[in-house]
């Protein structure tokens, strides 16, 4: 069967199946199990209403538990086991305690990934938020601001892989004395007359060149959110500041910034989450060579190149640990709102 056709069938079965499930289960509940008539009509309606939410929730809860909650538990378990080939040729996973973590922490590539990730965690959210704030403030009151915003926002739609190709062209280096087609080297050679540089192999700074790609993508996101927050600032506070003789910079830093601090934090943490999972950019541009390894790519290499599920799971747990503070913070905020 052609996959496109299979896709269509899946849509029909998936969507139709879901709708059928919801409709039939509701019918069953109302008509068969607890019919809203007869001597127990009132009690039956109450009972049906106790069960109905779970009918609505069941498919989602099932998928969430199986595809997100269970893997967390299973990854913890896998990170404590090791594949052992027995004498009869079968493989089993044996409990080995923290051995995988010990092995991982003696791997210099892991520490390189950790160090780089910390560097990413500082630079990318900071630059994206700063540029986003700048763009939001500058486009706020000009007539063609919306067009400008939509163009800066555009990289959001581009895949990390597509962005990797785009930026590889920018960082491209040709042999000396030929025409440089990468704009960075064209400018560098034009200004200094030195030989072109293979930018993605320059130690330490190549990390920065990879980060710029993500900053380029995420700035639009930061801008959109912060721009809405800037619009939400009460006009009176700004008017009052103008009356008091504040200059535009004072208005921005002393009046506007404090009022949107909450939003800045939200933007910062959202980008932090993206950074922690960044994989495609590094995978497509350097694959962790030349000192550019990051955790997500380290994990991928362990899992699918070295085929070491124990260490791979252990490094996945490190990523999980790093997002946990944000997870707790989010849950607490959500609970506060529910009240």
């Amino acid at each position: 069967m052609h996959p496109a056709f299979a896709g269509l069938v899946t849509i029909v079965i998936g969507v139709g199946g879901c709708l059928c499930y919801f409709w039939l289960s509701n019918q069953f509940l109302d008509k068969v199990l607890f019919p809203a008539k007869g001597p127990n009509a009132g009690r039956n309606i109450n009972r049906a209403n106790l069960i109905r939410p779970w009918l609505f929730l069941f498919p989602a809860l099932f998928a969430l538990s199986l595809y997100l909650a269970y893997p967390v538990v299973e990854t913890i378990r896998l990170s404590l086991t090791e594949r052992v080939t027995q004498t009869d040729g079968t493989t089993v996973y044996e409990f080995v305690g923290l051995k995988n973590y010990a092995q991982m922490s003696s791997d210099p590539k892991f520490w390189e990934a950790m160090f780089n990730n910390m560097f990413w965690l500082i630079v990318v959210p900071a630059l994206s938020t700063a540029f986003g704030l700048l763009a939001a403030q500058l486009t706020d009151r000009i007539s063609w601001g919306n067009i400008a915003k939509s163009l800066i926002f555009m990289p959001m739609a581009i895949s990390f892989v597509g962005a990797a190709v785009i930026w590889k062209l920018i960082y491209d280096a040709r042999p000396p004395d030929t025409s440089q087609i990468g704009v960075v080297n064209a400018i560098y050679v034009g200004l200094t007359g030195n030989d072109p540089v293979q930018l993605l192999t320059v130690p330490f700074w190549n990390n920065f060149f990879l980060m710029i790609v993500l900053v380029w993508i995420q700035t639009g996101f930061a801008m959109v959110i912060l721009s809405a927050a800037l619009r939400g600032i009460p006009e009176e506070t700004i008017e009052a500041a103008i009356v008091d003789g504040a200059n535009p910079f004072q208005i921005f830093f002393k009046i506007k910034m404090p009022q949107i601090m909450g939003t800045i934090v939200v933007v910062w943490t959202t980008i932090t989450l993206v950074v922690l999972k960044v994989f495609d950019i590094v995978f497509a541009m350097t694959n962790g060579q030349w000192g550019t390894q990051v955790l997500a790519n380290y994990m991928y290499t362990q899992l699918f190149v070295s085929r070491d599920w124990g260490v791979g799971s252990a490094s996945a747990m490190v990523i999980m640990l790093l997002v946990t503070p944000i997870l707790i913070w989010n849950v607490r905020n959500a609970r506060k709102e529910m009240r």
Partner: peptide, 18 residues
Amino acid sequence: VAFVVALLVVPLQLALIP
């Protein structure tokens, strides 16, 4: 609701092998 919010940030990398 808290469960859903928590799962919002779980990195999908964790889910690959299991």
